[in-house]
Amino acid sequence: RAHSNPFSDHQLEYPLSPDEMDWDRLYPHFVDEATGAMTKEVTIADIGCGFGGLLIDLSPAFADKLILGMEIRVQVTNYVEDRIIALRTNHAETNAYQNINVLRANSMKFLPNFFHKAQLEKMFFCFPDPHFKQRKHKARIITNTLLSEYAYVLKEGGVVYTITDVLDLHEWMVKHLEEHPLFERLSTEWEDQDECVEIMRNATEEGKKVERKKGAKYVACFTRLPTPEIV
């Protein structure tokens, strides 16, 4: 299935709180053998990771960071899981791809169940569902109310990456991010020198599809501003 309704009651598994999340199952290579504790925490999240192309290309580029893909569609999540298991098996001697994994989750509802305040450095929103109909706009992954949740899990100076081939959605995401007091757009110069933008443009399956069709790809990146003084 191409779509999943984020408002439905899905059969989902999620921890009661970030402290109760079992990360060692996803990143066994990053468990301290003596204490059983994680040596690192996830700092990069790909929200709606689809078939996992971005995760796989980010993995070697950020070998010392834990990267998590979140995807709501069961079959797609299973596919990415299998893909990562195969990659890990084929690269067993170098321990490559140990730093990426995928979770089935409705991140519009349960992001705060997985991440602590200011835990993330980067969040990716690649080719999100455009939800063309106006009355479905709340189902879009970028809304002014959800941005406050993303700002909560992002650390100061963290980056939100967006890319889409739908101009209307691009303008929508830019508008909402620009209007949000905790985000500021990064310049095109910044985009041009950032390796994630480069990867994001070329890595994802959706991106490649757009490339084949010679469609446009719209990128916008935003930095998480410091939280102002509370009044």
Binding site: L16, S17, P18, D19, K109, F110, P112, N113, K117, L147, S148, E149, A151, Y152, H180, P181, L182, T227, P228, I230, V231
Partner: peptide
């Protein structure tokens, strides 16, 4: 109805204070 209790600053409602987990 998703088990969440969320605390948000007012009037700066764009700043979430915390969630109460449990």
């Amino acid at each position: 109805r998703d088990e969440h209790i969320r605390i948000t600053h007012y009037p700066q409602t764009f700043v979430i204070n915390k969630w109460l987990y449990g």
